[in-house]
Amino acid sequence: MTTPNTSPGIDLDDTTRAELERAGVIVSKVDYLYNWARGGSVWPLTFGLACCAIEMIASATSRFDISRFGSEVFRPTPRQADLMIVSGTVTKKMAPQVVRIYNQMPEPKWVIAMGACAISGGPFKQGYNVLKGIDRYIPVDVYLPGCPPRPEAVLQSLNYLQEKIRTQDIKSDPAFTVGRRQYPVPEFTGTDLEPPYNPEVWQPPANPNAQPLEEATA
């Protein structure tokens, strides 16, 4: 993370630590222990939206067996879950509920955007009722492409997430610094959602060829 470890003392690299562990000495930091425990028991939310949900379920079954990575405990309630796998197309009608569920999850919480639809709208991007990516409203940690991604890919995205968790620093962890992250729930209007995106989380990419508005509409 951004803030380096400024505390005095030994900062061990992984090889030295492994050597010491072999010798029966465990030297550790609270950060390391904390992240190790967190990364090994990420509880996902039972949250199926569309096609990708079936592959998410398949990753939990015996052939792929997500419990090898400590994440087999799918919780139906957001209050007990750590990880939200947004598995499928988020429609505009569904988007407020997704944000609301995210708000209800306790810290620390992570989000995997699974499948092309959750990342950007995917094949349905041009639809009038399809949200063009869930990252417009909530922060996403891992993007998992595919339509739908294979169960192996779900496991790999979980591995990436665990790697990310291992680099977390307690001091800058939002769970301790800001408390539970909550984002405003978008509201329905006559044609679209209001606001169309949450500027705190997401900004549209800058267009190098942008024309002024008057020219474009003329």
């Binding site: 197309t89 429609t91 009608k93 509920q97 094949p123 639809g127 009722n129 399809v130």
Partner: peptide
């Protein structure tokens, strides 16, 4: 309607074979 992905509208704007996937 929570998964209304506008299938029919999309298919009316593309060729016959493109709707297959």
């Amino acid at each position: 309607g929570y998964l209304h992905r506008n299938h029919e509208k999309l298919a009316e704007n593309m060729s016959y074979l493109s709707s297959m996937p």
